[in-house]
């Protein structure tokens, strides 16, 4: 069991990082609001509480790198690409959508970013892509998964092959302590570190909501994957501050309070209230305008 995230004082945060974290936060909140209003079709999985992880990761990636994302992937995309309108158009099925509205929230393929909705499915695919990177020497594959994903056999097949064949594959685990409604201790025996050790795969874990601390812990690992052409697993301890999808949170009040206390947002508003307030106003307005803009567009077309 990973302990609660506790940070006494955060390190100073760049405007770019904080802005992006806040943009993702307001993007996700806007989606939940649209659902409540009955203006969004289907389902979505927001990354509330986890936004700082992809913001920390993305700065360490190059455009040549491939990113594999999962069902909870809006933050992964928004941290890498400055294209929130296109993502929102995808989720709402409007003109300008990344994938013409066919893929929706969890099936995005844009440049070198690909997400898919089956747990663990992307890891063997990422190994294949990483093997090509190994051959051409031009990048790495980075795959985001959750702690729940470790129940899938494909994860182990992928780690085994990646280690055997020297695939430059970075696996970023957003360990949010819960798989839909099942607490991690009820679905994961042993530890992720122990499982990585079994394959001889390098593993690092960070327990911090500080985007600089997360990035600082990850940087040597990314460098290792790039230089040594080996796989590595980076486990970031986070709290899922929102529901699994929408309105399906069965956690107790105490558990929700703990998740809220572990949310990076609470820490940043406490330590940098003026900076957060100023940037938040900008990002909130930006997202609101984006929602208005995208929802006014014609429906997407697919041929």
């Amino acid at each position: 069991m990973i302990g609660a995230v506790r940070e006494r004082t955060l390190t100073p945060v760049s405007e770019a990082d904080l802005s992006r974290m806040l943009r993702i936060r307001h993007f996700e909140k806007a989606l939940l609001r649209l659902f409540e209003q009955g203006r969004l079709n289907g389902t979505t999985h927001t990354c509330l509480g986890q936004e700082h992880v992809p913001v920390a990761v993305s700065a360490l990636l190059s455009p040549d790198d491939h990113v594999f994302s999962n069902h909870r992937g809006h933050g992964h995309f928004l941290a890498r690409y400055d294209e929130p309108h296109a993502l929102l158009a995808e989720i709402t099925g409007r003109e300008g959508a990344l994938c013409n509205g066919v893929g929706g929230s969890q099936h995005i393929y844009h440049e070198r970013f690909l997400s898919t909705g089956v747990q663990g499915e992307s890891l063997p695919v990422a190994v294949g892509v990483a093997l090509r990177h190994r051959r051409t020497g031009d990048g790495i594959a980075c795959a985001y998964i959750g702690d729940g994903t470790w129940g899938e056999g494909s994860v182990y097949e992928a780690l085994n092959m990646a280690q055997l064949w020297g695939a430059p594959l970075l696996v970023v685990v957003e360990h949010n302590r819960i798989a839909q409604s099942t607490p991690t201790e009820a679905q994961l025996a042993g530890s992720i570190a122990g499982r990585c050790a079994g394959f001889g795969v390098r593993h690092e874990r960070v327990e911090s909501v500080d985007v600089n601390v997360v990035r600082g812990a990850l940087a040597p690992l990314v460098e290792y994957v790039r230089r040594e052409k080996r796989p590595a697993v980076f486990e970031a301890s986070v709290h899922r501050a929102g529901p699994h999808s929408k309105g399906d949170d069965t956690r107790t009040a105490a558990e929700l309070a703990e998740a809220a206390a572990g949310d990076w947002y609470a820490h940043y508003t406490r330590d940098f209230p003026a900076q957060v307030a100023a940037l938040e106003e900008i990002e909130r307005a930006f997202v609101d305008a984006a929602v208005e803009n995208v929802l006014a567009r014609p429906l997407s077309e697919w041929s």
Partner: peptide, 16 residues
Amino acid sequence: SEGGIVGVGAGLALAG
């Protein structure tokens, strides 16, 4: 690893 190697094949195919 039948599932794994088909996934690796798909990854190679996607990457060119």
